[in-house]
Amino acid sequence: MKLKQISLFVENKPGTVNSALKLLADNGINISTLSLSDSKFFGVLRLLIRDWEKARDLLEAHDFAVKITDVVAIEVDHAAGSLSKVLEVLDRHQVNIEYLYAFAAGLHGKAAIIFRFADPDDAISKIRSELKLVEPLDLFREIPN
């Protein structure tokens, strides 16, 4: 139900994001989705990767600061207003969202939104009857390893 998200510290200078991505690519690790959040001087690059343990070990060996966080993927239709419907449910249950981003890869015609909740277990128990949560296996099904 929960997904392991890899977060990386990146300095705000040219080439740092690419050096991480290139390292993963050179080692045959596919990134399912990524998002970058930054301040003026540094950023946090977040990655969803099927073999997250291999990616973590590789990145740590190359001096990246790495953190693993549990996130939840919620399925949404490719239709106007579908995200706001999800947000309504979360709001009704007073679930705290730290941040969210879209899952880029295809998911049998649907899309997924990745949520970082303050308390993922609590969030899952509150919303699982109303929303379709994506299992890690389904999420990565169409991604080559």
Partner: peptide, 15 residues
């Protein structure tokens, strides 16, 4: 240098 205790997946936490 960020280390295990400083680094966080939220930018605001590091800030």
């Amino acid at each position: 240098e960020v280390n295990e205790t400083i680094f966080h997946d939220r930018v605001s936490a590091i800030e």
